[in-house]
């Protein structure tokens, strides 16, 4: 009873704060100065039509590197928590038989059709990051969803964890190396003018932004696939 009262008081006080936020909110009529300068600078200096990707990979590129570090820490902690799991003691033969159960035919057929489409779609999102909505992070998440579908539909499928770990580390190291190359050859860390800017709106344009998108997509995809692989029940 007391607990429900405390919960109600907490929710009511948060509700009051949120209500004052919602009442005092007025829509902006024009952009704030920082946003206006970003919208003006990204097409001119970086040559990228997509303002959001230009901000994420060049002007706020250091924050993106921090987010990549957060993802790496999450993968390491999931590996630490679940890597040492042994099969819990006291399993009967019934549980042992159920672990090698194949998935149903509907899921297998659906996976046969959907996984190529998912991979093509992920590649399209990653490569189109600088032209239209998309980018490295979103494409990596779509790759991981394709891997999840394969893990569900074919339980005997064992992704090569060594290969995934080496790929993801290489992609991360190359990302930092491209950033340092920007420091050496152009304006600053993760400056994208180390590669030619090209024609505005073409496929190979906007300097190093497509390269950074691909590296980011590969790293995020491998990271999330490794996390998903750890959740499978172990066979001893």
């Amino acid at each position: 009873m007391i607990q429900r009262l405390c919960v109600a008081v907490a929710i009511a006080s948060f509700g009051l704060v949120f209500a004052s936020l919602a009442v005092g909110y007025t829509e902006q009529n024009s952009l704030r100065p920082l946003a206006e300068s970003y919208v003006r600078l990204v097409p001119h200096e970086l040559g990228a039509p997509n303002v959001i990707t230009g901000i994420l990979l060049t002007y706020r590129g250091f924050d993106t590197l921090g987010e990549v570090a957060v993802l790496f820490m999450v993968a390491a902690s999931v590996g630490l928590l679940l890597g040492a799991r042994r099969r819990p003691r006291g399993t009967s033969t019934r549980d042992r038989a159920s672990e090698s159960r194949a998935s149903s035919e509907i899921v297998r057929t659906g996976a046969d059709i959907l996984v190529p489409l998912i991979c093509i779609f992920a590649a399209y999102i990653i490569m189109n990051g600088h032209l239209s909505a998309g980018g490295g992070f979103q494409g990596g998440a779509v790759i991981a969803s394709g891997v999840l579908l394969t893990l569900l539909a074919f339980p005997q499928y064992q992704p090569n964890l060594e290969f995934l770990s080496i790929t993801e580390s290489l992609a991360g190291a190359l990302f930092v190396l491209v950033g340092i190359a920007g420091l050496v050859m152009a304006g600053g860390f993760l400056d994208n003018r180390i590669l030619p800017l090209g024609q505005f709106g073409a496929f190979f344009s906007a300097g190093a932004i497509p390269l950074l998108s691909v590296l980011l997509g590969v790293k995020v995809g491998c990271e999330l696939s490794v996390i998903l692989e750890r959740f499978r029940p172990k066979k001893s």
Partner: peptide, 12 residues
């Protein structure tokens, strides 16, 4: 954009 992916990782 990045917060969504990080949220999924924290849920994991």
């Amino acid at each position: 954009v990045t917060a969504i992916v990080i949220g999924m990782a924290v849920t994991a």
